[in-house]
Structures are given as structure tokens and as C-alpha cells.
């Protein structure tokens, strides 16, 4: 088996689209998925590196497993659904504590999926674009949207209309990102800037999906290199243990 060099974990409430995001990125397709059980392991070749990605089940049933999947993670993608205020709240209430077992220098990304349902910008398919969609454009697009849409927490979502009301704005996500950083005890200087780590994506159209994964993969590279060095020192080191022994330096 190709040894994974680094571990990335997708977390988030059920039905926010974790599996779809990953499927879009890995298979370039969007299809109906069914509720994930437990966790699913994928291996992604990224240049010379093998990145393992864990797609976890959002269902409460599997909640107890979350910390196991997160153990030794170098990056965690916290996913919510932009049309569901609750899904953002769940991240803080239910999922944040699971990340305690991740590496100390773990990178966090906050991802609002299903943005095609609320933002016209994201409705165009971007499959072939790869990385071309830069985040500043996305963020700018969002800026416009935000003025039109009022975030209305907990208001019922109209299921019939094709354009749904956006319940979670990027600002909300940025605020949560700040709280996560505080929870992790990271100060302003060592943490990655929120505008860089908060994404809005659409697994359905592919909007911003590649950007999300590729940004993250680039960010975990230092972590990979460090780990490779450690592995040279102790070549038989257990994959699971590496995470726990990791040096405490924070990356980037």
C-alpha cells in the first residue's frame, strides 16, 4: 500500500455535501449519494505525495468515531450548508471537539457548500477550470450577494424554489473561523487568515471545489516534508503515532 503522507478529514453535519464535494473533486462528477456510514478513505496522488482523505459520516450515529478519524490529521475541512444555519451551528457544537485529536499544527478550512442554490455566480459549471477560479473573485461575488440576501437564521427554507435563501453568509463563517482559532489557542500571528480559509463551494457545479482542495494540499506540504524527515529518523514509525508525536511548531 502506498503509505499516505498526510491526512485530511472532512467533517460536518449530515447532508451538507461532504461526500459530494469529495466526489466532485476526485471523479469530476456530481451524483446522488447516499448517507455515508462510518468513514470512507480515499487516497489522492498530489505530485509526489500521497494524501489520504477521510470522508466521515455526518450522522449523529457515528459521532463517537469522529475523533478516531481525526487523529493525526494535518487538515480538517469543516463543512456546512449555506442554506442551513443549523449546519453551521453543528460545526461548533458537535464537531469542533472532535478535532482535539488532530495535529497541533492542523489546518482548518471552513466550507459552505451548496452555494449554487443561493448564488447565481456559482451556478455555472466550472469543471474544466481547475484552479482558475480564484477566491477573490468568489469572495467579491459573495459580497454582492450578501447585500441582497438577508441571513435569516432558522427560518424555513422554501423547498420548491430553485433559488433558496442563503442562511449563512461568508461573514458568519469568518466569525466562526475566528472562534475556532481561539478554541485552538492560536493567536493572530500564527493562524492562517480567515479570508483564505473560508470557502464557499458547490459540489453540484464544481464551483470553487478544486480551489478548496488544492489550496489545502499546498498548505499541508510543509507538514508532509517534516513528517518525511521524521520518518527517516525512525523508519518504522507507526502512522497513527506520528500525529501524536508531532512537533509543536505551527506551520506557515
Amino acid at each position: 500500500m502506498k503509505k499516505p503522507d498526510v491526512k485530511v478529514v472532512l467533517l460536518g453535519d449530515m447532508n451538507v455535501g461532504k461526500t459530494s464535494l469529495l466526489h466532485r473533486y476526485m471523479e469530476r462528477k456530481f451524483k446522488d449519494t447516499v448517507s455515508t456510514v462510518g468513514g470512507a478513505f480515499y487516497l489522492k496522488q498530489w505530485g509526489p505525495y500521497n494524501i489520504s482523505i477521510w470522508d466521515t459520516a455526518g450522522r449523529e450515529q457515528f459521532h463517537g468515531l469522529g475523533s478516531m478519524y481525526c487523529r493525526g490529521a494535518a487538515a480538517i475541512i469543516l463543512t456546512y450548508d449555506v442554506t442551513s444555519w443549523q449546519s453551521l451551528g453543528e460545526l461548533e457544537e458537535r464537531f469542533l471537539s472532535l478535532t482535539d485529536t488532530a495535529n497541533h499544527d492542523c489546518i482548518y478550512a471552513l466550507v459552505g457548500n451548496k452555494v449554487d442554490l443561493t448564488d447565481a455566480k456559482a451556478q455555472l459549471s466550472q469543471d474544466s477550470d481547475g484552479l482558475s477560479e480564484d477566491r477573490s473573485t468568489a469572495a467579491a461575488g459573495d459580497e454582492e450577494e450578501r447585500t441582497e440576501l438577508q441571513a435569516a437564521p432558522a427560518s424555513p427554507v422554501s423547498l420548491s424554489g430553485s433559488v433558496l435563501r442563503k442562511q449563512v453568509t461568508l461573514e458568519d463563517a469568518v466569525a466562526l473561523y475566528g472562534r475556532i482559532m481561539r478554541y485552538k489557542g492560536l493567536d493572530e500571528t500564527s493562524k492562517l487568515p480567515a479570508d483564505k480559509m473560508c470557502f464557499e463551494t458547490s459540489a453540484k457545479t464544481g464551483y470553487n471545489v478544486d480551489a478548496l482542495f488544492e489550496t489545502l494540499f499546498d498548505l499541508v506540504l510543509p507538514s508532509i516534508l517534516r513528517k518525511r524527515n521524521e520518518d527517516k529518523e525512525s523508519p518504522t514509525v507507526d502512522l497513527e503515532e506520528v500525529g501524536n508525536k508531532r512537533s509543536r511548531s505551527s506551520c506557515c
Binding site: M26, V34, Y42
Partner: peptide, 18 residues
């Protein structure tokens, strides 16, 4: 049935309690 009802299994490797 678990396997049949979960088409999501078709990619990747699943690890789940049962």
C-alpha cells in the same frame, strides 16, 4: 443489505462500526 443500500461505498474504502 448494508452494502447494497449504500452506493456511496463504490469509491474509497469504508471503515464503519457494525
Amino acid at each position: 443489505n448494508l452494502i447494497g443500500a449504500s452506493s456511496a461505498f463504490q469509491a474509497g474504502e469504508i471503515w464503519t462500526p457494525i
